[in-house]
């Protein structure tokens, strides 16, 4: 008898869950339909990330927040002929989704290079300056520049600009730096590796490193001059030149009237928008 009740309870619980999810899914889709029907503007789906603070991440209640969202919301305000909708995907799926027309714009601090431009259409107007710096353990004093990294091991994340910059450097200088690839999805293991001297450095940006130190207690620090200052761009499908031109124009305006700088100061804690 006892077992009977247990099974019944589980079945009841599961059916309630399925039911609520179905209702929620149903409501979600109907509201979507009504909004798109009401406005005449063209729907543009933006593919952005869900785990890259402070650019694109989810807040406590699961809403997308960050720099990417703030900038694009302002862009959309100035381009009423479009209606932006946001979809959160991981880095690689943004690229694949763009190719498969699941999304129309990729916004995940993408950096330009000729190989990448072969496959995707990059914007002409950048919207962020990405300043990469060397990060080492708090007590290290021997590393102060990229030359000091020769013969040392550096952790680089998959899909990041850090790997690309150091790979280029290695190519030009005969592989002096030992690159240790990691998924980079979890800062804990990277910081632990620096603390235990398993690796000598990783490459990051100041704001993120500040965040690490606040969270884990002062364990790492930024040293020396930036090793790379690059710009990041939105990416489009090759044929979407009109969309690209429209957004480029607005970004230029936003730079000229200081709006972009304001958003950067508000969200990133400094003006990281000056053109290369």
């Amino acid at each position: 008898m006892k077992e009977n009740i247990l099974i019944r309870k589980v079945v009841a619980l599961v059916s309630v869950m399925i039911f609520t999810t179905l209702i929620m899914a149903g409501c979600g889709s109907t509201t979507k339909d009504s909004t798109s029907g009401a406005s005449e503007s063209k729907k543009i789906i933006i593919g952005t990330g869900n785990g890259f603070k402070p650019y694109c991440y989810l807040d406590d209640s699961g809403n997308l927040v960050g720099y990417e969202l703030e900038v694009l919301k302002e862009v959309n305000r100035r381009l009423p002929q479009y209606k932006f909708e946001f979809e959160t995907l991981d880095f690689k799926n943004i690229l694949l989704s763009l190719g498969a027309s699941k999304v129309d714009i990729g916004a995940h601090q993408f950096e330009k290079n000729p190989d990448r431009a072969q496959k995707y259409l990059f914007a002409d107007e950048s919207y962020t300056t990405f300043i990469l710096r060397i990060t080492v353990a708090k007590n290290r004093t021997d590393i102060n520049s990229i030359e000091d990294l020769h013969g040392k091991s550096v952790l680089v994340g998959e899909g990041g600009n850090d790997a690309f910059v150091l790979e280029q450097y290695n190519k030009e200088h005969g592989n002096p730096i030992k690159l240790v690839y990691t998924s980079g999805s979890d800062p804990v293991t990277m910081i632990k590796a620096l603390e235990d001297c398993r690796a000598d450095a990783f490459i990051s940006i100041k704001r993120i490193v500040d965040g690490y130190n606040q969270t884990y207690g002062d364990k790492v620090k930024i040293v020396g001059q930036p090793i790379s200052t690059s710009s990041t761009y939105y990416i489009y499908r090759k044929e979407d030149t009109q969309l690209k031109t429209d957004i480029d124009k607005v970004l230029k305006e936003m730079k000229a009237d200081g709006t972009l700088a304001q958003i950067s100061i508000k969200v990133l804690g400094g003006d990281y928008t000056t053109n290369d």
């Binding site: 989810l58 699961g62 979809e87 995907l89 800062p187 804990v188 965040g211 690490y212 969270t215």
Partner: peptide, 24 residues
């Protein structure tokens, strides 16, 4: 699921990790 932006339990854990750095 989370790669596609669907936030299930594991996805929520990742989201908390990305937001607060307290992923462990």
């Amino acid at each position: 699921a989370f790669l596609l932006g669907i936030v299930d339990v594991m996805g929520k854990a990742r989201a908390i990790g990305a937001n607060t750095y307290h992923s462990l």
